[in-house]
Amino acid sequence: MYAFDYHRPTSLRQAAAMLQKTEDAMIVAGGHTLLPTMKQRLAQPSALIDLGGLSELRGIEKKGRAVVIGAMATHADVAASDVVREAIPALAELAVTIGDPAVRHRGTIGGSVANNDPAADYPAACLGLGATIITNRRKIVAEEFFQGMFDTALDEGEIITKVSFPIPAKAAYAKFRNPASRYALVGVFVMKRGSEIRVAVIGAGSSGVYRWSEAEAALAKRFSPKSLDGMSASADDMNSDIHADSEYRAHLVGVMARRAVQAAVAR
């Protein structure tokens, strides 16, 4: 790691002020993406502003017809939350697929969403559930928030405080792990809420998380895995690496989508 200054603000306002006034400062939440990147000297923040002291960012609550999760809630918090498990079990199940137990004890939903790693899991849930990302300044719907690999609508000095997930009727997440890293090689989050159908795909697309509109149209007719029989995504614009070329990824998108729908229907 390169040297950096470390700050541990005690309020969100203080954190935002520090972020605003310190050039090249970065927020650290759980640090489970940022620190490995810094260890490889691929990131060189001048300062880290640690949100670890902001307990107000950790809560998980049901608010009307949504589950609102504080940005500093860890993956383990989400996985174990009775609120989440009752209202959106698919989200708790998704949290359990992230990393490993020790990673889940530190990694946070806010960090994952802010980083928008094209192989992370939460972006699929956000887009799949039609979540709203709440920052210290505004509310941003998922469609507008995720803007391509590692790119989000966050402005400089803007900090995610909460993510609000509207409660679906049915939802599920199916993930095919990268055999080495355990990140999502392909992850598909499906959701049905009234007539609204969403199929959000992570890991596969070269621009990060996206909605698979053909599958949504097919499922709108009938929300059943059979509706997706024989369907696979287009291999154009798919990621390709040693673990999965674009053709295999496109195929897996279809398989994972069917499995997700099957799980959602069975719930």
């Binding site: 055999p179 080495a180 890293s181 990140y183 040693i242 673990h243």
Partner: peptide
């Protein structure tokens, strides 16, 4: 070496 860490070399 494309597989120079446990992110790409499958243990």
């Amino acid at each position: 070496l494309v597989t120079a860490s446990y992110m790409d070399y499958t243990m």
